Lab assay of single mutants.
Amino acid sequence: SEYETMLTEIMSMGYERERVVAALRASYNNPHRAVEYLLTGIPG
């Protein structure tokens, strides 16, 4: 799925699956924002 592709691409940058899933959830599946959250911390 498109979601799995995003997940895999972000994980390939060296992040753990659960952190990527949390970041995508926080960003409403916006991959650019999710990466930003992984770099700066997930808000909330």
Rank of each mutant, 00 (worst) to 15 (best):
Y15H: 05
Y37S: 05
T5R: 15
I10F: 06
E18A: 10
A26M: 08
V21R: 06
V35S: 03
E4L: 12
Y37Q: 05
A26W: 09
G14L: 05
M13F: 06
V35G: 02
T40I: 09
R19F: 09
H32Q: 15
R19A: 15
S12H: 08
T5I: 13
E36W: 11
V21H: 05
E36N: 06
I10V: 03
I42N: 08
L39E: 13
G14H: 02
E9Y: 14
N29T: 03
I42V: 09
S12W: 05
V20H: 00
T8F: 14
M11K: 01
A23G: 01
M11W: 03
I42A: 09
E18Y: 07
R25H: 12
E36S: 05
V35Q: 05
P31E: 05
T5G: 08
M6L: 10
Y37T: 04
L38T: 01
S1P: 12
Y28M: 15
A22N: 08
S12K: 13
S12C: 08
P43Q: 10
A26K: 08
Y3S: 03
R17K: 09
L39I: 12
E18F: 07
P43E: 09
H32M: 13
M13H: 05
E18S: 10
L24S: 00
T40Q: 13
E4T: 08
S27A: 15
I42T: 09
L39S: 09
R25I: 12
V35W: 06
S1L: 13
T8W: 13
Y3M: 05
P31R: 09
L38W: 03
N29S: 05
T8L: 15
Y28V: 09
N29A: 04
R19N: 09
R19L: 14
G14C: 06
N30G: 02
T8D: 09
L24M: 08
G41Y: 11
S1D: 13
Y15M: 02
S27E: 05
A26S: 06
N30V: 07
G14T: 01
P31N: 03
N30W: 04
P43C: 14
E36T: 06
E9I: 14
V35L: 15
I42K: 08
L24C: 07
N29L: 08
A23V: 03
T5A: 14
H32I: 15
V20Y: 06
Y15P: 01
V35N: 02
T5H: 12
S12I: 06
M11P: 00
S27K: 02
T5D: 11
V35F: 06
T8H: 14
A26L: 11
E18H: 10
T8K: 15
Y37H: 05
N29P: 05
I42G: 10
R33F: 10
G14D: 02
A34F: 04
E9L: 14
M11E: 04
Y15F: 15
E4P: 03
V21T: 06
H32S: 14
A22W: 06
L7T: 02
E4H: 09
G14W: 06
M11N: 01
N30R: 04
T8Y: 14
L39N: 10
E18W: 13
G14I: 05
Y37V: 06
I42P: 08
Y15L: 02
E4M: 11
E36Y: 12
Y3N: 04
E2K: 11
Y3H: 04
E2Q: 11
L24F: 02
V20S: 02
M6A: 06
M11F: 04
V20C: 03
E16V: 06
R33N: 07
E9D: 10
A34G: 02
Y28C: 15
E36M: 10
V21S: 05
L38Y: 02
E16Q: 07
E4G: 06
E36L: 11
R17E: 05
L38E: 00
A23P: 00
A22Q: 10
R25L: 14
L38P: 01
E18N: 08
M11T: 05
R19D: 14
V21K: 08
P43I: 12
E4Q: 09
S1E: 12
M13N: 03
H32R: 10
E2R: 10
R19Q: 15
T40E: 11
G14V: 07
V20A: 06
M13S: 03
S12V: 06
E2I: 11
S12N: 13
A34W: 03
R33Y: 09
A23F: 04
T5W: 11
N29G: 14
H32W: 11
V35K: 08
I42R: 07
A23E: 01
E2L: 12
T40N: 14
G41S: 10
R25F: 08
S27Y: 06
T5C: 07
Y37R: 04
P43G: 09
L7Q: 01
R19V: 13
A23T: 01
R17W: 08
P31H: 07
A34R: 00
R17H: 06
R19M: 14
Y28H: 15
L39V: 11
T40C: 15
Y37L: 14
E16Y: 04
L39F: 06
L7N: 00
S1A: 12
L24E: 00
E16I: 07
G14F: 05
E18P: 05
T8M: 14
L39R: 14
N30H: 05
V21G: 02
Y37G: 02
L38R: 00
A34D: 01
G44W: 10
V21P: 00
M13C: 09
L38G: 00
A23K: 01
M13D: 02
A23S: 03
L39M: 14
R19E: 15
E16H: 05
R25V: 10
E36R: 07
N29D: 08
E16N: 07
S27H: 07
V35R: 07
G44C: 14
P43A: 10
L38N: 00
L38I: 04
E4C: 15
E2Y: 12
P31Y: 15
L7F: 03
G41N: 09
P43T: 10
N29Y: 10
A22F: 04
L39A: 10
N30E: 08
L24T: 00
E16R: 04
M6D: 02
H32C: 14
A23N: 01
A22Y: 05
A26G: 05
R19T: 11
Y28R: 14
N30S: 06
M11V: 07
S12E: 09
